[in-house]
Design a protein around this nucleic acid. Structure first.
Length: 584
RNA sequence: GUUCCUGUAGUUCAAUGGAUAGAACAUCGGUCUCCGGAACCGAAAAUCUGGGUUCGAGUCCCGGCAGGAACGCCA
C-alpha cells in the first residue's frame, strides 16, 4: 500500500475530488466532504453531493449515480465497496483485505512530521504568578499547553516552550510594603511554608491598604522603587521569586512538564520603553487621560475600548510586556507562529494584542507571525464562580496532585503488592497525575467546568488508568510470549475475520485523521475520545479473541493488532502528556 | 449597554449542518477453570423555550428564559 494512504479519510477526499473532475460539467469547487460514517452505513461517507446539488439545483441522487459510476471504475477504490444511499450519500466500506494491508503498512509508522515541517512555533503556557502557590486555576494552562506543544512537535514543528511567568506585577507593591510594615525577614522563612506566608502577608497588605490610604500610596511607591532598581526591594523580590520557582519546579517535575525558556515579565523590563516609543512614533499609540493607549478605529468594539500599554503613573503593564515578548520571539527565536494558552477571559486582551502587533510590525516592515490564542474555560468553584486565590479557600495544586498520587498508591499496593516500593511510587505518580491530566483534557477546552475532587480523582470509566491498563496488559502479553515491543511484528498472511478484529482494525485507521482534527482545532479532547473508543474496542477484542495457544497465523495477526494498539495508545498518551506504564 | 461562553439522560461530558443524539459515573441485571477483573456483555434514562433558514437543525439565524465572563490604569 502506498504511504499516502496513511490518512484514509483525506486520501478518499482527494480521490473523489479527482474522479468528480472527470465528469462533464461537474463543479470544480466541489468538496466531497468525506466523513467517518455510522458503522451501520459504512466506514466513510461522501457527504458533499447534497451540498453540491443544493447549490446547483440538481437532483442529488442523479449526481450521486454519476460519481458512483466513476468510483466503481477506479483502481484506487478497488479495495472498497461502494453504494449510493439515503438522499445522496456515497457509503464506502473498507474490505478486510484493505484493512489488512493498511495495518501491515502503518503499524509503528504513523509519521506526520511533514505537516508542520519548517515551522518555528513558540508556545506560551503555564505562566503562573510568583509569590503565590499554584492552585487548581493554574491547572489548565499547564496541562493543555503541554499537550498542544507535544502535538505540534509531533507534527514536525520546531517548538520553543516559553513559561512567561508573572514576576513583575503590581502584587509586589503591596507585598513589599506589607513585608516592610510587618518587619519580616524574607531570608529567615522556612522554604516549605514561605509561599503560604507570602499569601497571608499579601492579604494582610491588601487589608492595610484598604484601611489606610497612606499605605496604599506606600505600596505604589514600593512598586515604582522596585521597577527603578531599588537594591532593598530587588533583594526582597529575588527572595520571593527564588522560593516561588522552587515550588513551581516541584509541580512541573511531578507533572512531567518542562520548558525551554522561563522568561518572566521582568525579563522584558528594559525592553518596554522601546515598544512604547515605536508605537508612538508610528502614530499607533496615543496619550489619553494620562495613559498611553491604542484604539483600533476599524474595529467595532476596539475603536472605543482602549488597549492600555502604559499606565498614567508611567508604569508598564502586561500588555506592554506581551508586546515586547512578541518582538523578542520574532527577533531572537525567528518564530513564525505564536501560541498563547490562557484563560478565555483574556480574549479581548489577545485580540487587541494581535491587532496591535499587526499594525506595529507592518509599520516596521518585518514579517508578522501567526498568532493564536488557545483559550480555555474557567475552573469554577462549587458556587459557580471562578476559583480565586484571594478567597483563601481555593485548592492548591500541590494538594490535589498529592491526593491523586496517594489514592493511586493505595490501589497499586492492593493490586500489585509484589512490585518494589519505588516501582509502586512511580506507578502511583503516573496514574495519579495522568488521571488529573486526562480529566481536564477530555473536556472541550472552551467550556467552563466546576472543580470536583471526585471528577479529578476518578480512576474508573473514561479515564487515564483505563487506557494505561490496556497498555500494561499488552506488555504483559508480550512478556509471556517473550517478544519485545521493539521487534518488527511478524506479518501473518491471515486476514482479519472476527467482528472484533475487524472493528479494531477499522478503528486504527481513524488515528491519522484524528490527529489531523486535533491539530486543526487544537482541541485535545478529540484525541481523548478517540483513544477511549480505541481502548474500549481493544478490550472487547482482547476479551473475545484468544491469542496464546492459537495457530500461528491467527496468533500473528492478533499480535499485529496488539502491537498497533500499543503504538497508538503510547503515542496518544504521550501527546496528552501522560507517561506509559509497562506494569501497573 | 457592547461583546464572548454555556444550557443535552439522575450526574459529568461527547456529537467538523447528515441517516435511529454517543459515552462514562451512578442504578439494575449478567459473564469467569479469564493471555492482568483497574476487564467484558446487557437494560433503563436526555437536546431550556418560541419562531425562522434547510432535502435535513443539539449544531446556523432572530426573539425569550437561565447561568457565567470581559469591557481604562489587575494579570
Amino acid at each position: 500500500m502506498e504511504t499516502d494512504w496513511l490518512d484514509v479519510k483525506s486520501k478518499l477526499g482527494t480521490i473523489f475530488y479527482a474522479l468528480s473532475q472527470k465528469i462533464d460539467g461537474w463543479d470544480e469547487n466541489f468538496d466531497p466532504e468525506v466523513r467517518v460514517a455510522d458503522p451501520r452505513f459504512g466506514d466513510f461517507q461522501v457527504n458533499g453531493i447534497l451540498d453540491l446539488a443544493k447549490k446547483n439545483k440538481k437532483n442529488p441522487r442523479e449526481l450521486g449515480e454519476k460519481l458512483l459510476a466513476k468510483a466503481k471504475q477506479s483502481q484506487d477504490l478497488a479495495n472498497c465497496s461502494l453504494e449510493l444511499s439515503g438522499p445522496g450519500f456515497i457509503n464506502i466500506r473498507l474490505t478486510p483485505n484493505f484493512l489488512q494491508q493498511w495495518v501491515r503498512t502503518f503499524c509503528g509508522q504513523c509519521d506526520f512530521k511533514q505537516w508542520l515541517a519548517g515551522k518555528t512555533i513558540v508556545v506560551d503556557y503555564s505562566s503562573p504568578n510568583t509569590a503565590k502557590q499554584m492552585h487548581v486555576g493554574h491547572l489548565r494552562s499547564m496541562i493543555i499547553g503541554e499537550s498542544i506543544q507535544r502535538l505540534l512537535r509531533f507534527c514536525g514543528a520546531n517548538i520553543i516552550r516559553d513559561n512567561h511567568i508573572g514576576d513583575w506585577g503590581t502584587q509586589f507593591g503591596i507585598l513589599i510594603m506589607a513585608i516592610k510594615w510587618t518587619k519580616i525577614d524574607v531570608s529567615s522563612l522556612n522554604p516549605t511554608e514561605a509561599l503560604d506566608e507570602f499569601e497571608r502577608i499579601y492579604r494582610e497588605g491588601v487589608e492595610l491598604a484598604q484601611q489606610d490610604e497612606t499605605l496604599l500610596a506606600e505600596a505604589r511607591r514600593e512598586l515604582v522603587a522596585l521597577q527603578n532598581g531599588s537594591p532593598e526591594n530587588l533583594y526582597i523580590w529575588e527572595a520571593i521569586n527564588a522560593i516561588s520557582y522552587r515550588a513551581f519546579e516541584e509541580i512541573y517535575k511531578q507533572m512531567d512538564v518542562t520548558f525551554d525558556y522561563v522568561l518572566g515579565e521582568s525579563f522584558y523590563r528594559d525592553k518596554v520603553d522601546r515598544v512604547c516609543q515605536e508605537l508612538k512614533t508610528f502614530n499607533i499609540a496615543e496619550e489619553n487621560q494620562g495613559a498611553l493607549v491604542i484604539f483600533h478605529r476599524d474595529h467595532d468594539r476596539f475603536k472605543n475600548q482602549p488597549f492600555l500599554i502604559r499606565k498614567s503613573d508611567g508604569a508598564s503593564n502586561y500588555a506592554t510586556t506581551d508586546l515586547a515578548a512578541v518582538l523578542y520571539r520574532c527577533e531572537n527565536f525567528h518564530a513564525d507562529t505564536l501560541v498563547y494558552v490562557t484563560d478565555g477571559r483574556q480574549q479581548d486582551h489577545f485580540q487587541q494584542l494581535f491587532l496591535t502587533v499587526n499594525r506595529w510590525l507592518s509599520a516596521k516592515n518585518i514579517p508578522i507571525p501567526h498568532m493564536k490564542h488557545v483559550w480555555f474555560g474557567t475552573v469554577l468553584g462549587e458556587d459557580g464562580r471562578a476559583i480565586k486565590t484571594r478567597s483563601g479557600k481555593s485548592i492548591k495544586l500541590k494538594q490535589l496532585i498529592d491526593e491523586a498520587i496517594a489514592r493511586a498508591q493505595i490501589i497499586v499496593a492492593q493490586k500489585n503488592p509484589d512490585l518494589s516500593p519505588s516501582e509502586q511510587n512511580e506507578i502511583a505518580r503516573i496514574v495519579g497525575t495522568g488521571a488529573i491530566k486526562y480529566t481536564d483534557l477530555s473536556q472541550n477546552r472552551t467550556h467552563d467546568y466546576v472543580f470536583s475532587w471526585d471528577k479529578m480523582l476518578s480512576f474508573d470509566g473514561n479515564t487515564a488508568p483505563y487506557l494505561l491498563y490496556a497498555v500494561a496488559r499488552i506488555y504483559a502479553l508480550f512478556r509471556r510470549l517473550k517478544i519485545s515491543p521493539a521487534d518488527t511484528p511478524t506479518i501473518s498472511m491471515a486476514t482479519f475475520s472476527t467482528p472484533e478484529e475487524l472493528t479494531l482494525a477499522r478503528k486504527l485507521v481513524d488515528f491519522p485523521s484524528t490527529i489531523a482534527q486535533v491539530l486543526n482545532d487544537l482541541k485535545p479532547h478529540y484525541l481523548c475520545t478517540y483513544l477511549f473508543e480505541l481502548t474500549s474496542e481493544f478490550s472487547s477484542f482482547y476479551n473475545a479473541n484468544r491469542i496464546i495457544g492459537e495457530p500461528k497465523d491467527i496468533l500473528e495477526k492478533r499480535l499485529l493488532l496488539c502491537q498497533f494498539v500499543r503504538y497508538v495508545l503510547e503515542t496518544g498518551l504521550h501527546l496528552l502528556g501522560i507517561e506509559k506504564l509497562e506494569k501497573m
